[in-house]
């Protein structure tokens, strides 16, 4: 399929050995496409975050593969995987993980700096991304001076700053009130998602389900079903 972003095949991950061996994900296979907002939902401990980590090049599976552009990312070396994450994946963490000692614009510039862009140039580009999320006025403030919703948008600006084609959101509304959470996801769907980008969101916040193109359910480490949502 031309617009295939990620194909996961038979992903399995366990932790511990012997009697302590616990399966976090069992034989998970799915596809995600460009232009799609895919939700991974399920109760706590169902393996959502583990699955997300394996497809984003953060956690090595015990078996299975993750194909991106016909290449298994887990066949890459550590440095190549780091480059893959830097160039292809954008992360929005649940707690944002912004650097409180840096200004907002410097936080957004981090992926660009990691890509060896000149410091001043990277700040200029980062300011452009802050404009996209409507926070250019807050550029010189430290993140702690921003509200939760604003910090979430800074995290989004940082995630898209390196032009990734796969965006990963981990519980994006967990730290936000209902209204702000909805607005954030609505903004992501309207302004961040495009035909060349795939967004995968792990959540169990039913208030934002209406924005999903597909919802993939997980339980006890297994994918129990995929529901296609009509626009």
């Amino acid at each position: 399929m031309a617009n295939l972003a990620v194909r996961a095949q038979g992903l399995t991950k366990w932790f511990g050995e012997g009697d302590a061996k616990t399966f976090a994900v069992r034989d998970a296979s799915f596809e995600a496409h460009f232009g799609e907002l895919l939700y991974i939902v399920g109760p706590s401990g169902s393996g959502k975050t583990t699955l997300l980590s394996m497809i984003s090049g953060i956690l090595r599976p015990n078996s299975g593969n993750v194909m991106i552009e016909d290449k298994d990312i887990w066949s890459l070396s550590d440095d190549e995987i780091a480059d893959f994450r830097l160039n292809r994946i954008g992360f929005v963490f649940q707690d944002y993980h912004l650097f409180p000692r840096l200004t907002t614009v410097e936080n957004v510039a981090i992926p660009l700096i990691l890509k060896k862009m000149d410091w001043n140039e990277s700040l200029k580009v980062a300011l452009g991304y802050l404009e996209i999320v409507g926070l250019e006025e807050r550029a010189q403030l430290p993140p702690v001076k921003l509200s939760g919703g604003e910090q979430q948008r800074v995290a989004i600006a940082r995630a898209i700053a390196s032009h990734p084609d796969i965006l990963i959101f981990d519980e994006p509304t967990a730290s936000l009130d209902g209204d702000t959470g909805r607005k954030i996801v609505e903004f992501v769907k309207k302004d961040i998602l495009n035909e060349k980008r795939c967004i995968i969101i792990v959540t169990h916040d039913i208030r934002i389900f209406e924005f999903a193109d597909r919802i993939m359910n997980m339980e006890d480490g297994k994918i129990t079903g995929v529901e296609k949502r009509e626009p």
């Binding site: 953060i58 550590d78 440095d79 780091a82 480059d83 893959f84 994450r85 830097l86 160039n87 994946i89 992360f91 963490f93 993980h97 650097f99 981090i110 992926p111 990691l114 940082r158 390196s162």
Partner: peptide
């Protein structure tokens, strides 16, 4: 934060 940098792509 260092972990986040690693996740983003820092070697």
């Amino acid at each position: 934060k260092f972990g986040a940098l690693k996740a983003i792509g820092a070697k």
